[in-house]
Amino acid sequence: MIKCENLQKRVPMAGTELEILKGITLEIKSGESVAIIGASGSGKSTLLGLLAGLDEATAGSVAINGTDIGALDEDDRARFRGQHIGFVFQSFQLLPALTALENVMLPLELQGQNSVEEQARHYLQRVGLAARTGHYPLQLSGGEQQRVALARAFASKPAILFADEPTGNLDTTTGEHIIDLLFELNREEGTTLVLVTHDQALAERCQRRLRLDGGALVGE
């Protein structure tokens, strides 16, 4: 499903180069759930960005379902993301000018699908927000916003879902509800799940855990 080899990321900083990822090689199978854990600054988010095709690696390769996404240009990567990848972010990343329903419809519209509203409503109902479709993000609580984000992520039926600290901005109880919902949906949809987290409890629920330290993979 996801295969990355000798993945490196270096960025220029104050005259020298900062090495963020020092050659990561890993493989994630279809339907698997994997947690990437590590201390702040260990390179977790950078790795996630590269695996999801949001960023370009300095060296090495990432292949998803056999497609080398490093070889694609940004537009092709965007199309690829639209077709195969879903996201859940720590800061929700809902568009403030759109209602909950419109936010969920957005990726479907971008895929050029028809009758997207029905589908979007279905997923909002699935996360328990059927009554709040017309609300704007600012009118929703953090937990509700993350549920909209979940609905948005699953509505486009992605093969892989990337989640970046999905509970990082939520209190424990709300966080647990979100995690339950995330794994439930994941099971129903048969999605491959890759998440980055500090949250040990969350990491424990994944089938596999990858630990990063100083930009290198130090164990499973």
């Binding site: 949001l54 537009d75 965007a78 993301r81 077709q83 996201f87 568009l95 971008l110 948005r152």
Partner: peptide, 8 residues
């Protein structure tokens, strides 16, 4: 929207 698949 680009992360969700919109091209430039």
């Amino acid at each position: 929207i680009k992360s969700l698949g919109a091209t430039s």
